[in-house]
């Protein structure tokens, strides 16, 4: 839910909207906001699944420190959604485990493992 009106802060400017795709489903977002806040506004709190037990995780720090919010964004795994701004047409997917990188054209397949 958006905090549109606030007793101290100015009204939230909701004039510039973009669309992002969460696991294929279109979601409305405000230009400039981080992916995590657009998802939370849409009622989504589970962002990724852990590697071994596939347990859900959501945001913890919201300032880019803990990496609990990482997802696959436009094919790039391990993207911290709390500090990555939305872009119109962006694809955001639940990350299961450590995440693989999409194979760039003409290279051997790489995965996210160290």
């Amino acid at each position: 839910m958006r905090v549109a009106k606030h007793p101290i802060l100015d009204d939230l400017d909701q004039s510039k909207k973009v669309t992002i795709y969460y696991n294929g489903k279109p979601i409305e977002a405000l230009e400039g906001e981080p992916i995590a806040s657009a998802l939370i506004n849409a009622g989504i709190r589970s962002f990724r699944l852990t590697q071994r037990r596939h347990e859900p995780r959501g945001i913890f720090c919201a300032i880019g420190r803990c990496t609990d919010c990482k997802m696959i964004v436009d094919g790039v795994a391990n993207t911290r959604t709390c500090v990555t701004p939305v872009r119109d047409g962006m694809r955001v997917e639940t990350q299961d485990g450590v995440g693989r990188f999409e194979k760039p054209a003409g290279t051997a397949e790489g995965d996210g493992r160290p």
Partner: peptide
């Protein structure tokens, strides 16, 4: 404590005051 919905107080503060979304 690892369930989505458990977060730092500062994280919630960032969400409401900067990103303007209720966590």
């Amino acid at each position: 404590s690892t369930l989505p919905g458990v977060m730092g107080a500062g994280a919630a503060q960032t969400m409401v005051n900067i990103n303007r979304v209720l966590p």
